[in-house]
């Protein structure tokens, strides 16, 4: 539990009070998430465009993705979102120890996601389901199956990069928890890491059906 050396949070010099500080940071966080969603959203628009352009390639390639692994990853991400929200709740209650437990749980779930992703990527490499000229999958009648897999790697790769950033934020929260006492007035790092993780979930909830289920 809380050690004796934990500090209380101090409001930064250029803010008048805690309210101004927190509300500004929260607003900034929302703006950042909005810009992230614009980025992924544009990527999804590109995906829908390709689906329209080459429906045959999508229909033929989609069964090569294993929806069971996708579903397992959906479970990992949603559970991670749940534990992150719990971490923020415990931070409000000054339960430094439980905050850490939940952060570590989320970290493990994120690792699980990446492990499954690696298994999927390995299978794609094994079967030659690769982008562009590297594509040498067998039994495809459509000429453009490589576009589906190109898009698959770009979209899931970018998403996986965000998973890594989210894990970085969790580790950062763990570090902060050893230095600063979280209180009802100051739990911002955990709250924001949780919001970021919810964004990772949100993107996945669109990517999963687009790639694994529709096509």
């Amino acid at each position: 539990m809380a050690s004796t050396t934990l500090q209380e949070h101090e409001v930064a010099h250029h803010f008048d009070d805690l309210e101004q500080e927190f509300e500004s940071q929260k607003f900034g966080m929302w703006l950042f998430m909005a810009s992230e969603i614009m980025m992924f959203g544009a990527l999804l628009v590109g995906g829908l465009f390709l689906l329209y352009l080459h429906p045959d390639a999508f229909a033929e390639s989609r069964p090569h993705l294993d929806w069971r692994l996708g579903a397992l990853n959906t479970f990992f991400l949603l559970t991670g979102g749940f534990t992150m929200a719990r971490a923020a709740g415990f931070a409000q209650q000054r339960e430094q120890g439980k905050v850490r437990t939940n952060l570590i749980l989320s970290l493990l779930l994120a690792c699980g996601f990446l492990v499954v992703k690696t298994i999927e990527y390995k299978a794609k490499f094994h079967h030659g389901l690769l982008p562009g000229h590297a594509f040498h999958g067998e039994g495809f009648t459509s000429l453009h199956a490589h576009i589906f897999f190109g898009y698959y790697f770009v979209a899931t790769g970018l998403h996986a990069l965000h998973v890594l950033i989210g894990m970085g934020l969790m580790i950062w929260c763990l570090k902060v928890s050893k230095r600063v006492q979280f209180t009802r007035d100051y739990y911002t790092p955990v709250e924001f890491a949780g919001m970021y993780w919810a964004l990772v979930d949100l993107v996945w909830v669109f990517l999963f059906p687009l790639l694994y289920l529709v096509g």
Binding site: G132, I147, G150
Partner: peptide, 8 residues
């Protein structure tokens, strides 16, 4: 696209 020619 430059590196892997994904064809988008």
């Amino acid at each position: 696209e430059n590196f892997f020619h994904i064809g988008i």
